[in-house]
């Protein structure tokens, strides 16, 4: 791995064909990820935020090539991941890891915690059995499952939701990945457990984040604020805004981002009842039949004629990218 590695995503698309019936092959697609580009350097933390169905999970899976892209390229470790053959991809796998929303579904129910974690080392390293055992104990300790001996022989269903997610995290960080994507890592958990897992992820980042790229996917921008320096806002398969998290939250530029931020409830009655609200209307469009032009135009309070026909490109506003014609003069 090069010292100053980076992740560069260029014009990535993922269209799912919609099969209407078994006789007629339709030409319709769900454009789950439509032309997304961004890049992050080593040590960077990126949050991907958007409402359900906006394409976040699909984007993550395409970046890691867990599903095949429709087009575009993803550069990581100076290679285009989309060009790699099976063998090369397998060699890169330990460097790119993902944590999923539903820990139960991503753990093999018939394997003990011990087996789940040992397998990772067996598959990708040539460590001896004793060395592996020590590593596994270390890992469990690190993700807060201590004393580790207590958890080694448990099956996933014998763990609580939070503990399962800890096992998933242990598995993901086992081989010191350079790219770690967490897809809604706490959405399936209870409120207090949620805090515990967020803290764990933050600690891992503090410990080795400088040598890693961290991507957190969430529908909750508050979670992203607590974890990520940069944010990418998705709406209906497209990226609408990209920039520093704090400045996006303080002064959102895209009308959708504004609506989103104004909609986030703040647990403080004084602020909550005095803050200026942006009127919200409508719901996200269907991805099979999205509106023409800017996908947000039917809900947008600033909509112009042009928005209804043309897809806005990215405009640079200071250090931010915004896909909205309001910023066309910049």
């Amino acid at each position: 791995m090069e010292k100053n590695f980076f992740l560069k995503v260029v014009n990535v698309k993922k269209y799912f064909p919609v099969s209407k019936s078994f006789l007629i092959k339709s030409q319709k697609y769900v454009k789950a990820v439509d032309n997304i580009s961004f890049s992050i350097r080593r040590g960077g933390t990126l949050g991907i935020v958007g409402e359900s169905g906006s394409g976040k999970t699909t984007l993550a899976r395409v970046i890691l090539r867990l599903i095949e892209p429709t087009s575009g390229s993803v550069y990581f470790d100076n290679k285009n991941i989309f060009d790699l053959d099976k063998h090369e991809l397998r060699k890169l796998r330990p460097k790119m890891q993902m944590i999923f929303q539903d820990p139960m579904a991503s753990l093999n129910p018939r394997k003990k915690v011990k087996q789940i974690l040992t397998q990772v080392f067996k598959l990708h390293t040539s460590l001896s059995n004793e060395e592996i055992y020590d590593r596994v104990l270390d890992l469990l300790e690190k993700v807060g499952l201590s004393p580790p001996e207590l958890f080694l022989d448990r099956y996933p269903h014998e763990l609580s939701g939070g503990q399962r997610q800890r096992v998933c995290i242990a598995r993901a960080i086992a081989l010191n990945p350079k790219l770690l994507i967490a897809d809604e890592p706490v959405s399936a958990l209870d409120v207090s457990v949620r805090g515990q897992i967020i803290n764990l992820l933050l600690n891992i980042y503090r410990e080795r984040g400088e040598d890693m790229i961290y991507i957190i996917i969430s529908h909750d921008i508050a979670l992203i604020k607590s974890m990520c320096k940069d944010t990418l806002v998705m709406y209906s398969g497209r990226m609408v805004e990209f920039g520093e998290t704090d400045s996006i939250i303080k002064s959102p530029l895209h009308p959708y981002t504004r609506m989103l931020i104004s909609a986030v409830p703040i647990p403080d009655p004084e602020i909550a009842r005095t803050k200026k609200r942006i009127p919200i209307s409508g719901e996200p469009p269907s991805l099979i039949n999205p509106p023409p032009g800017c996908h947000f135009h039917p809900r947008c309070p600033y909509v112009m004629e042009r928005c209804k026909v043309e897809v806005p490109q990215y405009f640079q506003v200071e250090d931010r990218l915004v896909s909205c014609f309001l910023y066309a003069q910049y």
Partner: peptide, 18 residues
């Protein structure tokens, strides 16, 4: 335990256990 977008906040503390 829950992160917020309030400007001052960023640290979250936790309740252990379940």
């Amino acid at each position: 335990a829950v992160p917020t977008i309030k400007e001052s906040e960023s640290k979250i503390s936790i309740i252990g256990g379940s």
